[in-house]
Amino acid sequence: MSESSGPIIDRVLINVLETMAFIFADPWEEIEVEELAPWLAVRLRFHGHGEGQVVLATTNRCARMLRAEVLGQDADEVTDAAAEDTVRELLNVICGNILTELYGSVPVFNLEVPEIRPAECDEIAGLAESPESGKVFIDGEPIIVALQPA
């Protein structure tokens, strides 16, 4: 894996959003992280052929919007727990596809259960600047996915 994985993650992220949620992503633009807070981050560790984690960061608003889009609900009625279930599942699908894109279909990986937590702005800025991250907007809200090999 000598080249940056950013373009591969971009492609996976766009495909998963379109196919799983019928959401069409917009290109990334520079953001003011503090203005978009609060953020949350989901981390999924993987083991096996390689070790590391994939992190998905987005705003709380975007998490609720994703849930509403997928389940056909009103975003104002989406609970935090329901929104978290959606971003966990989204990361689960994205992570599986990133690993297959990067390493092929022969190696075996074990994925842990995704962990979710609030995220600080400094961490989000670091993820957004990483060449190993994919980044899109959906309806004006950012989604960042970063690969962090151990």
Partner: peptide
């Protein structure tokens, strides 16, 4: 229906 991408599995 899974995220599993390993042909072995």
């Amino acid at each position: 229906i899974s995220t599993e991408g390993s042909q072995t599995r």
